[in-house]
Amino acid sequence: MQTLERILYAEDEPDIRQVASLALEVVGGFTLKTCNTGLEAVAEVEAFAPQLLLFDVMMPDMDGPSALAKIREMDAYRKTPAIFMTAKVQPNEIQRYLDMGAVDVIAKPFDPMTLATQIGDIWARTQH
């Protein structure tokens, strides 16, 4: 099983981005590439070569699901696990995100001290 190191993270809200970055980099020890929008994430993906995608759903100029769809068109990222992080977590909404190709959904507000573990668990699940 591969160890998870590189996460591409897209979030338009700067405060949340900062908190999550701390949670993942300092608490989790991951290497993080943060992007402000979905479009930016699509642009960064080849250069950064992430192992996992962590996207906010609602972002200006390109939302999370669209960004994911774009990235899936690249052969190398067809199977890269993707997680949506969103405040809209009614059961039917979660099902919709899963249908869009996410492996899991993390609800906002998240617990910063367990966020890294949560993502690590999801990653482990995708590795067999």
Binding site: D15, V19, L22, V27, M113
Partner: peptide
């Protein structure tokens, strides 16, 4: 905003 607050406090 709560995400930021809770996150910050948690950290």
């Amino acid at each position: 905003p709560l995400t930021s607050i809770r996150g910050s406090l948690g950290l």
